[in-house]
Design a protein around this nucleic acid. Structure first.
Lengths: 149, 149
DNA sequence: CAGCATCCAGTATGATACTG
DNA sequence: CAGTATCATACTGGATGCTG
């Protein structure tokens, strides 16, 4: 079956690992309908989490500083995102009973551990973006006449 | 300033990189309101993309096989997810004009390159999940009485 | 088998105004 | 300053039925 061959140019290491992971993963999905990976990845997926984590990578930040760091986030969403991160133990919230009150947020050790894999993904995203944009234009313009001989 | 110190236990390498990245990133967000990273990460974020990519990590799959691989995905969402991946050049779609028709999907080189960073993130998610679950329980039960002395 | 069109519900997000 | 409450809305994703 010549149609089933894998291209050899793709790094096989990550591929193999993922393939195995997927098998475990799938059974978890079937069992619990809420596997660990999805549980955590859903957070990464939502609109603001990664942005906030990145903003906190440089050190503790106050609420207002975070607002300025991501000007297009609403207070509502910022609060909610921070609450989720705090709930998950990725971010620590500290209230200083000054007047007016000030609060700062910092990554916990658990949250800090996310930075490396996140950086890897972001590095990939940056590198691939031109190719992706090009692919999109090709897809949107060309009628996409592909089929097997 | 006891409140401003960073904990030393967190890996500083990823932290530094992310902090720098964030600065560049933010300016892009401000400029274009649609930076490369967000553009790509939004895809990772949606419900099915990572699952499908993982399912394809092991090699080309037919549409029906993918349906079985992720039993809780609807045909509608599977099609849509695959179209997006195809549009972005991460997945190649091949039609075999048999009867009934069969179609298979495989990762392109571009798509395959995503596997490594994705694997890193998933590894982190798996490792951290117990701690996250514990943190959630603590957060949900305890009244969370934290404040600075 | 693979895929599209339509309809519909739930959720995610934003805008705005109010509070300690 | 750092939120909370409420409302409005857009988008996501699921169910179903039809087509080639």
């Amino acid at each position: 079956m010549g149609r089933g061959d894998l291209e050899g140019t793709v790094s096989p290491s990550g591929r193999d690992e993922l393939a195995r992971k997927f098998v475990e993963w799938r059974s978890l999905v079937l069992d619990a309908s809420r596997c660990p990976v999805r549980d955590v990845l859903d957070r990464v997926g939502d609109k603001w989490t990664t942005l906030i984590v990145m903003a906190l990578a440089g050190g503790p930040q106050r609420f207002g500083a975070l607002t300025r760091a991501a000007p297009d986030i609403s207070k509502r969403m910022l609060t909610q995102t921070l609450r989720n991160l705090e709930r998950d133990g990725l971010v620590a919230r500290t209230v200083y009973p000054t007047k007016p009150p000030s609060v700062d947020y910092r990554l916990t050790a658990l949250g800090g551990a996310m930075l490396e894999p996140l950086a890897a993904l972001i590095r990939w995203a940056e590198q691939s973006h031109p190719a992706i944009v090009a692919a999109r234009r090709r897809f949107d313009e060309g009628p996409a006449e592909e089929s097997a001989a």
